[in-house]
């Protein structure tokens, strides 16, 4: 790892001012992704701004919403009693990610900005448009078992790896950020982006902006919910595909529904068409199967990941069945 300077920020404002002065500076929170990438020389900042001293760790239940500080740890959020009660989908998704040691270190903001796990991105001897623009995409025509089936481009077929973000996309969260130009809010589903021909940009956060919190509006998805993650081993592995399913049922009729998918795109993938299809219908396995098939309709595969179409449809169906039976 290249040596670098490290300084500890004392407030959000000064963290932002400080980072704005430097070209090759980066924030560091839990470090579980950044330190890994620095060891592999995939990123090599000259300066790190340690934001762990900032007052952004609180989970606050406000009128009509919960606000979760960007520095709240993944385990802290997953195990918070009120989060479990009011936002169980988020708790389940967080608990399905990484290991308990990593969840104790990882923060909400860092989780959102974690880089793809595409092996070409991680290997500096390989071409990768995300890491080195215009070097090509190794995964297209290469090893692409883990890769995208929705919204990919000729430049990049990498997927966003987070579990937490799939639940946050389903729950219509908002992202609060602070930058050199002031504060703003971004809709969670607009936060991450598709690769297009600029895959080096994972999201719509502007350079030097700091995530300060996420907010989730209150909702009725507290009972019939499930996060189903399919992976190569039962725990401590990234998703092949995952589904966040939330149903608001009355007498077995679907009043409202949210569906989002992980492991299939460059961003958390909301299944809006399937949601619309399910609204107003009566719960049945057949209906859930139809929703699964409908959701996978526009998928495009790349050889190694052909299995994701069937696996995706089955996972959606299964997640909905489990959610409805709770």
């Amino acid at each position: 790892m290249k040596n670098f300077q490290i300084i500890r920020a004392l407030s959000s404002r000064t963290a932002v001012t400080n980072i704005s002065k430097e070209k090759e500076a980066m924030f560091i929170a839990g470090g579980t992704n950044l330190v890994d990438l620095m060891k592999k020389n995939v990123v090599a900042p000259d300066k790190l701004i340690d934001i762990n001293g900032l007052d952004l760790k609180k989970i606050e239940f406000l009128k009509g919403k919960v606000s979760i500080g960007a520095l709240a740890k993944n385990s802290q959020v997953a195990e918070d009693a009120t989060i479990k009660e009011k936002h169980p989908l988020l708790s389940l998704a967080l608990a399905a990610g990484a290991s308990q040691q990593i969840r104790h270190m990882a923060t909400v903001g860092g989780n959102m900005l974690q880089k793809t796990r595409c092996s070409y991105y991680y290997n500096t001897d390989m071409p990768c448009n995300k890491r080195t623009p215009k070097s090509g995409c190794g995964a297209i025509g290469g090893s692409n078992r883990m890769h995208a089936v929705f919204g990919a481009s000729d430049s990049c077929i990498a997927v966003h790896p987070s579990d937490m973000c799939i639940a946050l996309a389903a729950l219509d969260a908002q992202v609060l950020v602070e930058g050199p130009k002031g504060k703003r809010q971004i809709k969670f589903t607009d936060f991450h982006r598709l690769p297009g021909n600029t895959p080096e940009k994972d999201n719509n956060l502007e350079a030097k902006e700091l995530i300060t919190a996420i907010e989730i509006p209150d909702h009725n998805f507290t009972k019939n919910i499930h996060y189903l993650k399919v992976r190569d081993r039962t725990s401590y592995a990234f998703a092949l595909v995952s589904v966040a399913a939330a149903l608001d049922l009355k007498n077995n009729v679907i009043k409202d529904v949210r569906l989002a998918m992980g492991g299939v795109a460059h961003k958390p993938w909301r299944l809006t068409e399937a949601e619309e299809f399910l609204k107003g219908k009566t719960v049945s396995e057949e209906i859930f199967r139809q929703a699964g098939d409908l959701a996978m309709k526009g998928a495009r595969t790349y050889g190694g990941n052909d299995f994701k179409i069937t696996l995706g449809a089955n996972t959606i169906t299964e997640a909905l069945i489990i959610a409805a039976s709770k």
Binding site: I6, I28, G31, L48, Q100, Q101, I102, H104, M105
Partner: peptide
């Protein structure tokens, strides 16, 4: 708290 020391920068453990 249990953590992974390989991903922890000592300089952040003042």
């Amino acid at each position: 708290t249990r953590i992974l020391s390989c991903l922890t920068l000592a300089s952040m453990q003042q």
